[in-house]
Lab assay of single mutants.
Amino acid sequence: MDPFVVLVLCLSCLLLLSIWRQSSGRGKLPPGPTPLPVIGNILQIDIKDVSKSLTNLSKIYGPVFTLYFGLERMVVLHGYEVVKEALIDLGEEFSGRGHFPLAERANRGFGIVFSNGKRWKEIRRFSLMTLRNFGMGKRSIEDRVQEEARCLVEELRKTKASPCDPTFILGCAPCNVICSIIFQKRFDYKDQQFLNLMEKLNENIRIVSTPWIQICNNFPTIIDYFPGTHNKLLKNLAFMESDILEKVKEHQESMDINNPRDFIDCFLIKMEKEKQNQQSEFTIENLVITAADLLGAGTETTSTTLRYALLLLLKHPEVTAKVQEEIERVIGRNRSPCMQDRGHMPYTDAVVHEVQRYIDLIPTSLPHAVTCDVKFRNYLIPKGTTILTSLTSVLHDNKEFPNPEMFDPRHFLDEGGNFKKSNYFMPFSAGKRICVGEGLARMELFLFLTFILQNFNLKSLIDPKDLDTTPVVNGFASVPPFYQLCFIPV
């Protein structure tokens, strides 16, 4: 058959498939802009700032609406009420993970971030239990974070109060905490193996944040037939998995079943207990991918939040002064901060919360999916439909947070200066898919920041009023603009 005829037939089939998918069930789905064949609503979305586009569309179609990214149908949730109703009140029905062709290629359905069903539930339950087990290797997770915080302070001392970009050092600290939990080992910041790991993690975040990856996920045929950065992403992930597998083999040879040292040991012990169960989800494949998931999810998000926190503290020296006064009063100079201190430091706690609220790190979270046909607000959402959640619409709700575009710790303080919780605080998402490392991340943010401010004054290279804190939105995360500062020993 003539190649031209084959091409026309293929394009015609794709067009018909697109029209059929977009028209099927439209009477039951939430409203939304009319999609174009094949490309859907992509032309109506700013790929570099999806969150802003969703906010604009919500003003037209309401808090629940339908979009098509290519052939992929998505239902968008915008605003606290619908997000709570879906992710919390109907948590089980909305607990699936959205379709990610690239991740599915890399992870093969294993791990904790992109798995679904029984596998996801069992691996998540085990990971939560293990991360909360403060007795691994007779050292609590808090001990590990405190140790890394001391190392971080010593690295900052080496800058000798000269101007520096904190990106690298602030990236090393949370990565080392995860390494300590998974591998029972922290690395020197100049260790070549550690630097290679950091390089792969950072490069992957840069790649994932590009519009090209959005295109690959919406048109998965590209993955096999086109060159691009997605190939580098898959190569980096394969490198990390190979490295983790080597460490798993080392653990198998040296493990003491009665004295687990780290996450890998705990997983291997669980595998041993379930070795007679042919349906067990505790396999080497799941261990390797879960460890890679924890490394990827637990490094860049925390380091970016820390980097943004220091920029905001530079911009608002009056806030920094209040935090340091609270540190001096509650902790002093002669001991290290600990998590028990947080309950006695409402202002510092409010500042950490406000940093996370203000920066809105992951504006749309990772997409969910419905696990069955769901009736939601008089609409029928078919099983498997991807759910896109606007966390921006919750964290920047102007009824809950007056002047949401302003950095103001009073958003989390009552009139008496006591810490005030808010149900709208969802930087880790909400419901059954809430970030498994939430507790660890909150511990790291509090301890790293208090250790830094206990030991250093922060000095800006320019007038604080002239510092730009506008986030650089890159399609996946909101990151701070480049800046330098000086760490002046107190």
Results as ranks from 00 to 15, higher is better:
I327Y: 00
A477F: 11
K28Q: 12
S390W: 02
I434M: 15
V355F: 05
Y61E: 01
S478C: 12
G117K: 06
E326A: 01
V352I: 15
F267T: 01
S393K: 02
A106S: 14
P404F: 07
Q484N: 11
P260G: 04
F482M: 15
A309E: 01
L312Q: 05
N474M: 12
T290Q: 02
R119W: 06
G117Y: 01
F419A: 04
F134S: 13
A291Q: 03
S254C: 08
E104S: 11
P30V: 01
E203Y: 08
R261L: 04
F187C: 08
D2Q: 05
S51E: 04
P382S: 05
E155I: 07
S127V: 12
L449P: 02
L380R: 13
D89R: 05
L152K: 00
T386M: 13
N423E: 15
N418S: 09
G439F: 09
T385D: 01
D243A: 15
R21A: 13
S23Q: 13
N474E: 09
F451S: 15
L43F: 13
S24V: 11
I289A: 11
V5E: 06
S23P: 13
I264L: 09
T389L: 14
L310Q: 00
K273C: 11
T364Y: 15
T159D: 01
D165L: 02
M240R: 04
D414S: 09
R144M: 14
L195P: 03
S53A: 04
P227G: 09
F183W: 06
Y189I: 07
P101L: 02
N56M: 13
Y189K: 04
I88A: 07
L268T: 03
E241S: 11
Q279C: 13
D243K: 15
M271D: 00
D414N: 09
N107G: 11
E325W: 10
V479D: 10
D265A: 03
K375I: 13
L413F: 07
S365H: 02
L15S: 12
L57A: 05
L449M: 13
R108V: 04
W120M: 04
E199P: 02
R144I: 15
I327Q: 00
M136L: 14
T348Q: 00
G437M: 04
E253H: 15
D408F: 04
S12D: 04
P33H: 01
K420S: 08
D463G: 08
N56V: 12
L413I: 06
M339S: 15
V330Q: 10
S115M: 02
D191K: 05
P427E: 02
I39W: 06
R442L: 08
N202A: 11
P166Q: 04
R144G: 08
D46I: 03
C175Q: 06
G96C: 07
H396I: 03
F267I: 01
C179W: 12
Y483G: 04
A430D: 07
I169D: 03
S336V: 13
A321K: 13
V436Y: 04
F226V: 13
L43E: 04
R377F: 05
I181F: 14
M406K: 10
I207V: 07
L312V: 07
V6R: 02
D256L: 06
F69S: 08
